[in-house]
Simulated assay, not measured.
Amino acid sequence: MKRNHWRLGAAATVLAVGIGTGAAARDTGLRPGWSFEVAPYAWLPSVDANLRYSLPPGIGGSADVKADAADYSAQFNFAMAVGATVRYDRFTLLTDIMYVSADAGASRVEGADIIGVGRNPISSSVNVSGSTNLKTTLWTLAAGYTLATGSWGNVDVLAGFRYLGVEATTDYNLAVTLLGPRGNAGPSFGGVGRVSGRDDIWNGIFGVRGRINIAQSGFFVPYYLDIGAGDSNLTWQTFAGIGYQSGWAGVQLGWRYMSYDQGRSSLVQDMTMSGAYLAVNFSF
Rank of each mutant, 00 (worst) to 15 (best):
M1R: 08
R3M: 12
L8I: 09
A12R: 04
T13M: 09
A16Y: 02
I19N: 00
T21G: 06
A24G: 12
T28V: 03
L30A: 03
P32Q: 14
G33E: 09
P40S: 01
A42L: 12
V47E: 02
D48Y: 01
Y53S: 01
I59A: 02
G61P: 06
S62W: 04
V65Q: 02
A69W: 01
A70K: 15
D71C: 06
S73G: 09
F76N: 15
A84H: 14
T85I: 08
T85V: 08
R90Q: 13
F91C: 03
F91E: 04
L93T: 08
L93I: 13
L93M: 11
D96I: 09
D96K: 08
D96S: 15
I97W: 12
Y99R: 10
E110Y: 03
D113H: 08
D113N: 15
V117W: 06
R119D: 11
N133K: 15
L134I: 14
L138T: 14
L141A: 13
L141Q: 05
A143R: 03
A148W: 15
A148P: 05
G150M: 07
G150N: 06
V155Q: 04
V155E: 03
G160H: 00
R162W: 02
L164A: 09
T169R: 14
D171R: 08
D171W: 00
N173F: 02
A175Q: 08
T177G: 10
G183I: 14
A185D: 10
A185M: 05
S188T: 12
G191Y: 05
S196H: 11
R198A: 14
D199K: 01
I201S: 00
W202Y: 14
N203T: 08
V208E: 01
V208M: 11
R209P: 07
I212Y: 12
N213V: 06
G218S: 05
F219Y: 10
F220I: 04
P222Q: 11
Y223S: 05
G228M: 06
A229F: 08
D231I: 04
S232N: 15
W236D: 10
T238N: 10
F239H: 15
A240F: 08
G243L: 02
Y244M: 06
G250I: 03
G250Y: 01
V251M: 15
G254E: 10
G254W: 04
W255G: 12
Y257D: 11
M258R: 13
Y260R: 10
G263L: 11
S266T: 06
V268H: 00
V268I: 14
M271P: 03
Y277S: 07
L278F: 15
S283M: 09
